[in-house]
Nucleic acid binder design. Structure first.
Lengths: 212, 212
DNA sequence: TCCCCTATCCCCCATTTGGGGGTCAAAATC
DNA sequence: GATTTTGACCCCCAAATGGGGGATAGGGGA
């Protein structure tokens, strides 16, 4: 018999700015004998603070938080506690977001539309040292696996283009010439497979490369 | 003493494709003496079907559903049951979405980041025949109260522009001349206060006039 | 060390875009 | 019935965009 299983439940920290969702997870965990709610956080800063104080076995993390990107919170926690086990639980499914979160150190990525059972499975498997990527999520990253990613500068420029700036205005803002901006835009269009700047912005939004 | 309050709880139907959020609401309702969960729905079609069968006192409705827009589901339910009391519970906060939902017949509009107490308040006040619009939501519609809305044709054209089509291509698709498309675009830019088509698309996305 | 990637700048040129006007008919609203 | 709104069409023209080259410098990795 494994005594550790009944006396040492998996302690879970939830991070989400939706109180009702946290409530749902809390009530889910309550009905599982091998799990327990360690604590809750609403913001990224709070998640880091709670993690330090509680040292949960598994941390659930939304990507949309009031104060910072969930990926940033993951990065900071992993930086301080490399053994931390984190699962992203969010509504976003752009391949760029998923990739960023995994690179930051997430061991799992679930959509909020996932079944309750899937979340419990993910918590157990991540706690056991595994990773958890549902097929649809894995597919998303596979779709753009061959693409070379936009450079930081290109993303910076695309963000300005999204706000309606002309190439000239973008150049002024970044203190580079309009010609350089045009070169970057050409590269952006080619990498994203877009026909014009407007399509570049919408596909970058869909893929989670930039946000609104 | 009001005997009706203890023997006739407010029966609530939840509509959301996030099982864990539904769970949270269910557990919330359980702890309130004057409320009861009447049923749950994951899709718009299911919500309509469940409404017919259960006749809940209050229906909670997400705007993002797998099969249809939540606003469409509201419209159909109100069409069949004009006395239905519905509250939108969603993450979206574009003024156009809010306005559409209210016009479709929603009596309340809450964000998922709302406190649990606010949801309970909203359910009670909407059940009592009132409306419930939090200040931040009311502000959103007030911000663009004076603006004249895009016409149906303009939205149609903006959607095509968002996919990277040129004016000529949009014209071909809609069987109108490029000149006509240009006229509509001018009107779109002026109504949205955008400097170019790209900004028009991003502000329309922010305001919930079009979706990705 | 050498190569590749990134960022920067430059040229030419056809196409697209957006701003300024104006007209007209049908539909909806008053 | 009159007015307003909407959708469609047209003109001119300056500015912005995107596609096609090419060049250079620096940083990072093999």
């Amino acid at each position: 018999m494994p005594p550790s299983r009944s006396v040492q439940p998996i302690r879970v920290l939830t991070t989400d700015d939706h109180p009702m969702l946290r409530q749902g997870i809390a009530s889910l965990l309550q009905s599982e004998a091998d799990m327990a709610l360690a604590g809750e956080a609403e913001t990224g800063a709070e998640a880091i603070e709670r993690f330090r104080a509680l040292r949960p076995d598994v941390t659930l993390m939304d990507l949309h938080l009031p104060d910072m990107d969930g990926t940033e919170a993951i990065r900071r926690i992993k930086d301080e506690f490399p053994a931390a086990r984190l699962i992203v639980l969010t509504t976003y499914s752009g391949d760029a977001q998923i990739l960023r979160a995994l690179k930051a150190g997430a061991a799992g990525y679930l959509l909020k539309s996932a079944l309750r059972k899937d979340l419990l499975d993910a918590i157990r498997s991540v706690h056991a040292g595994g990773r958890k990527l549902p097929p649809d999520i894995a597919m998303k990253i596979a779709e753009h696996a061959g693409d070379d990613a936009l450079s930081g500068r290109e993303i910076e420029i695309l963000r300005l283009v999204a706000t309606g700036r002309t190439n000239k205005q973008v150049g002024d803002r970044l203190s580079i010439t309009e010609e350089t901006v045009k070169t970057h835009i050409k590269s952006i269009l080619s990498k994203l497979g877009a026909g014009d700047r407007t399509e570049a912005v919408t596909t970058a939004l869909k893929r989670g490369i930039i946000e609104l």
